[in-house]
Design a protein around this nucleic acid. Structure first.
Lengths: 144, 144
DNA sequence: AATTTAATTGATAAGGTATTTCAGTTAATA
DNA sequence: TATTAACTGAAATACCTTATCAATTAAATT
């Protein structure tokens, strides 16, 4: 069992939840497709190869749970469905998304220059920031 | 007729569209509620006082049209519905949103320190940025 | 001012994503 | 192995949004 699965098991146990084959298979699918920002339906289709009897509702429930347990993050690219990505807790690399408005490609940007901005906002607006979502829309190298 | 309504009339004419009482009333509602980030349903309820016979579908269609004409902007606060804000073209003040994860309050931040970051991204990722959406999640002064 | 015509509307059906329900099943503990 | 609360699949339901369509209307033309 890999690190992430081990972490899932611990977090589930802590809350009195169970590690089922369905949850295992769902997380496996996400692990095996890092960087792809899969939607619920896409995850459902892929999980079914490993776990054919799984129901769509279970996938929805599992993704919600994994998000609550801070193992994955739900992202919204305004394309009509929720997508998910695996959290990377080793390095707390913040990353943002570049979304091509023509072809829809999503590129991850691994920079974080928002710290100065955040400090200023916290001071000026008396607001305690604990997370941010940044999306840039434009044209990728193929489309521009 | 105010400036924004005048602008709407011109943009509609340019595309062969009509300025109807329903469109007028919908935009009026948004103008009279600036800074409130109203949802479609909320706009519908308010428009009905001025224009009781209006249908929900018309409000949806009008908001979509106003967004296309760059008069309003659709925003997504992940609360299950689309919200809208009036565009401010006088000063092209960029602004971001602070969203309180406890009470849901949305505060507008009128700063734009992303220019340096954008320049770097455009260079490093060969990506032409034309828009961005930035949301900060945390606790507002009342909730922290 | 009346005519013409394409755009617009309201009501309702239909679409798509996500959640709830519930009876049967199962993982984890004793 | 028995117990029990958690979990599952299937289907119903909820919810936001869009499509359909006959009737209406704004705006250009006569």
């Amino acid at each position: 069992m890999n690190d992430i699965m081990e972490k899932l098991k611990d977090k589930l146990k802590e809350k009195g939840y169970k590690l089922t084959p369905q949850r295992r298979a769902t997380l496996d699918t996400i692990i095996n497709n890092q960087g792809k920002h899969l939607s619920t339906e896409e995850i459902y289709d892929m999980v079914k190869t490993e776990c054919p009897e799984i129901g769509l509702a279970t996938v929805y429930r599992t993704l919600q749970l994994l998000d609550e347990l801070d193992i994955i993050t739900k992202i919204n690219f305004d394309d009509g469905c929720s997508r998910y990505e695996l959290n990377n807790h080793e390095d707390n690399h913040q990353h943002h998304h570049l979304i091509c408005v023509k072809c829809g490609e999503v590129i991850e940007v691994e920079v974080d220059l928002l710290e100065t901005l955040e400090e200023e906002i916290e001071k000026n607006y008396d607001f305690k920031i604990h997370d941010h979502k940044v999306k840039f829309f434009g044209y990728c190298s193929n489309c521009k």
